[in-house]
Design a protein around this nucleic acid. Sequence first.
DNA 1: CCAAATATGTTACATTATAACGTGTCTTGA
DNA 2: TCAAGACACGTTATAATGTAACATATTTGG
Lengths: 163, 163
Amino acid sequence: MAATIFAEKTETRLDNAERLCAAHGSRLTDLRRQVLGLVLEAARPVGAYDLLDGLRADKKGAAPPTVYRALDFLLEEGLIHKIERLSAFVGCTHTLDGSHAEAGHPHAAQFLICTGCGQVTELDDHGILHALIDATRQIGFTVHHSTVEAEGLCAACRDAATA
Amino acid sequence: MAATIFAEKTETRLDNAERLCAAHGSRLTDLRRQVLGLVLEAARPVGAYDLLDGLRADKKGAAPPTVYRALDFLLEEGLIHKIERLSAFVGCTHTLDGSHAEAGHPHAAQFLICTGCGQVTELDDHGILHALIDATRQIGFTVHHSTVEAEGLCAACRDAATA
DNA sequence: CCAAATATGTTACATTATAACGTGTCTTGA
DNA sequence: TCAAGACACGTTATAATGTAACATATTTGG
């Protein structure tokens, strides 16, 4: 009980997440909700140990497995994504914001990491996915999951750099 | 001196690598050559600490920074790639095998990771790259480097599974 | 040859992640 | 209802991956 209260927008997204979980028989417990909230409130990808620090505000002495288990759950539900290049986690804008909140199967997603401001943008571009599927089918490879991450400069940071 | 002798095919690729380095003023030292050799001889992606064990056959007491520095060099030269999802390294088939051995600038590459046999196949598909560039340009993002990794089953493992 | 740059050795530590086992809580069906 | 199993969480310890910082050696260019 007594889970941290987040900003209203975050609470809305958490409620969405809770509905999504309920819809296919899994439970967004207080702990998981809190970890997801911490991820969503961060403007940038968050590392597991940053989340642990955040948790400890509530639960002194929390240990790594607590966070990693919550993250594993959230990943499986498709509520967050892991940015491999950063060993850090972001909320899934696709499932939590849009109206297209589907069953939490892992969907193809691409991440744009701005090396200027550190923000990560999630794309859901079918062209990229199809190009990948096409190329792999030609050599008989069957894709189950794909990781697409691009590093570069977002529009704002590029403009700031050329100014 | 007295760097390990690898299989003939590996030595050929190491010689290619050495030429590539010389061509733009960097040096493939004995140590770097040995680490690259260890990567190339492995049938699968190799972790840094596996490489360290391999190194220690020659140089007892070698420490992590030795391996990581060699890896950093090889990555910069484009002679190897890091598979982020595996925290492991593979030789770059593009620069080391083909005749298209260019200056070792990082080129766009995609990796297919077979969860059956653990082998990784490197693609160099322009369709994927262009799809990514197109999608990002639309939102004003400038890509400097991209990571594309797909997990799934290679043709052989898929056939074995359906049999 | 000498100085600067480059490469490597060495020690210590930071960061990320998981194994293993115990305890609590939920739920479900006899 | 309540016991049994499943599920979630707590706790301790440790594994795996990666770097900082500084000392030494090697190479290269003037």
